[in-house]
């Protein structure tokens, strides 16, 4: 099992990251991927991602280890960008390799659901008219994370 975690300002290459997961083990039968990006609309121009250096990396590593234990992965990758990102830019890459698709896809959902409200990142939106707004945590996101925590065998 190979865990790859990065917190970086630079963009990630989805193809390179997918290929890395595919090549990790001959026992890998499938790779699940999720890519989150800055959603535009209603005058949104960009987002700035702030984080808590040190705690962020430790939290992502712990989540990746938990995913491995729950889903018997051959490997997983979490890359999260920080800094100012314009509409359409990638924010987060989550990937999980496993023997079968069920584990790969479920582990991918687990990682992104838990990361959204469990890792110390904060988004500040920036609009065309100059307004800036700190994004509020969505209740649906917190429910999704709680569901994984309340059901440790899923």
């Amino acid at each position: 099992m190979v865990v790859h975690v990065a917190v970086q300002a630079a963009p990630f290459d989805v193809g390179v990251e997918a290929e890395r997961l595919s090549a990790l083990s001959p026992l890998t039968g499938g790779v699940g991927l999720f890519v989150g990006q800055v959603r535009g609309g209603q005058g949104l121009r960009a987002m700035t991602l702030e984080h808590y250096p040190g705690m962020t990396e430790a939290t992502l590593h712990a989540l990746a280890q938990e995913a491995q234990a729950r889903f018997d992965l051959t490997g997983c990758t979490v890359i999260h960008r920080v800094g100012r990102l314009e509409v359409g830019a990638g924010i987060v890459f989550v990937g999980a390799g496993a023997a079968h698709r069920g584990a790969a896809l479920t582990a991918t959902s687990f990682l992104i659901d838990r990361l959204k409200t469990g890792a110390p990142f904060w988004k500040r939106e920036e609009y065309d008219d100059g307004r800036t707004i700190w994004v509020d945590a969505r209740e649906t996101d917190e429910e999704a994370a709680r569901a994984w925590m309340n059901n440790p065998t899923a």
């Binding site: 409200t117 890792a119 509020d136 996101d141």
Partner: peptide
């Protein structure tokens, strides 16, 4: 000790 609002990553 760090204080912060609810986290909004992803």
């Amino acid at each position: 000790v760090a204080f912060f609002p609810p986290m909004t990553g992803g």
